[in-house]
Amino acid sequence: MNIIQYILLLLIIFVIHRIWTRWHNREISRREWLGWSLFWLAAGISVLLPKTTDLVAGKLGLASGRGVDLIVYISIPLIFYILFRLLVKIDNLEQNITKITRHLSLRDNIEKKEE
């Protein structure tokens, strides 16, 4: 095994550990726990046995037949999609915070009028 494999494995083990403790503390749902565990498990396998990803890449018809390429091709659109989702979420959150803030400021004033 190469040094890079040790480093990546350590990172993955750490992440899986975090996922499991969060599941244990009921901070994430069962679905999240399962999904993320599988994802990082797959990541672990592809680090330990890089050839398995080449197999998948070949099956999918990648000209280079390299699993690393496949991972990059999938990751980039995925990351952009997640970014987009996050942007939408943050925007919604911000709008909701504004709504609450506005509601509070207007409500306070109606109350003061009744004094």
Partner: peptide
């Protein structure tokens, strides 16, 4: 004057 208050800063548009 009438003063309304945003408890947190939300920006000029808000």
């Amino acid at each position: 004057v009438k003063v309304l208050q945003h408890v947190v800063n939300r920006g000029m548009g808000a």
